[in-house]
Amino acid sequence: MFEQFSSGYYLGVLYVQPGAAEAALNVEDHEAVNRQLYGDSDGIERLDSPLVMKLDGTHFPVRGEEGVPTGTLTVPESLAGDDLPARREVLLARPERAGQLLKFGGWEPADAA
């Protein structure tokens, strides 16, 4: 689904459509991407961590959600342009970059509180 693009991002093509208030992927796709790209050398990954994607210059967290079709990214209306729904290139932040972006956005793991 995603391939290495740069030192900070992976590149993928997803069907992007307007959705709910938060961006989401199919829950199985979300877990597969987390395992493949965000898992560490011991196979440990946080499946509850949001992925961080970039579309049209905007970074946003992406959660797994039931009911989203596989291969589809739903985005909030505020991120949906007039060209959606459509297949689009989407950047996925590499783990180190995603952690920085989530931290700057105020996200903390549930068990850190």
Rank of each mutant, 00 (worst) to 15 (best):
M1N: 06
F2D: 10
E3L: 02
F5L: 03
S6V: 04
S6Q: 14
G8E: 11
Y9K: 08
L14Y: 09
Y15S: 08
Q17Y: 12
P18S: 04
P18Y: 01
A20H: 05
A20T: 02
A20Q: 08
A21N: 09
E22R: 10
A24S: 14
A24M: 13
A24T: 09
A24W: 11
L25S: 10
L25D: 15
L25C: 06
N26S: 10
N26R: 12
V27E: 12
E28V: 12
D29C: 00
D29V: 03
H30D: 02
E31F: 08
A32K: 13
A32H: 07
N34H: 00
N34V: 01
N34D: 02
Q36F: 14
G39R: 11
S41H: 05
S41V: 01
D42Q: 05
D42R: 07
D42W: 04
D42C: 08
G43I: 03
G43C: 01
I44V: 13
I44M: 12
I44S: 15
E45K: 01
L47D: 05
D48T: 11
S49D: 07
P50G: 01
P50A: 01
P50S: 00
L51P: 14
V52Y: 10
V52M: 05
M53F: 02
M53R: 10
L55H: 09
L55Y: 10
D56C: 14
D56R: 10
D56G: 13
D56T: 09
G57E: 15
G57H: 08
G57N: 14
T58C: 05
H59Q: 06
F60Q: 11
F60T: 12
P61S: 07
V62R: 00
V62E: 03
R63K: 13
R63F: 14
R63S: 11
G64I: 02
G64F: 06
E65G: 10
E65R: 13
E66F: 14
E66N: 12
E66L: 04
G67I: 07
G67P: 15
G67A: 05
V68T: 09
V68D: 15
P69H: 00
P69Y: 00
G71Q: 08
G71V: 12
T72V: 12
T72D: 12
T74V: 13
V75H: 14
E77D: 07
S78G: 05
S78R: 10
S78N: 12
L79D: 15
L79M: 11
L79R: 14
A80C: 04
A80S: 05
G81K: 13
D82T: 09
P85W: 06
R87L: 07
R88S: 11
R88K: 08
R88V: 03
E89N: 04
V90S: 00
V90T: 01
L91Y: 15
L91T: 04
L92E: 12
A93F: 04
R94E: 07
R94P: 01
R94C: 05
E96F: 11
E96H: 14
E96P: 10
E96M: 14
R97F: 01
A98S: 11
G99W: 05
Q100E: 09
L101E: 11
L101G: 11
L102I: 06
L102Q: 03
L102E: 10
F104A: 06
F104R: 02
G106T: 01
W107H: 08
P109E: 13
A110S: 12
A110W: 10
A112P: 14
A112H: 07
A112R: 14
A112K: 07
A113P: 12
A113L: 15
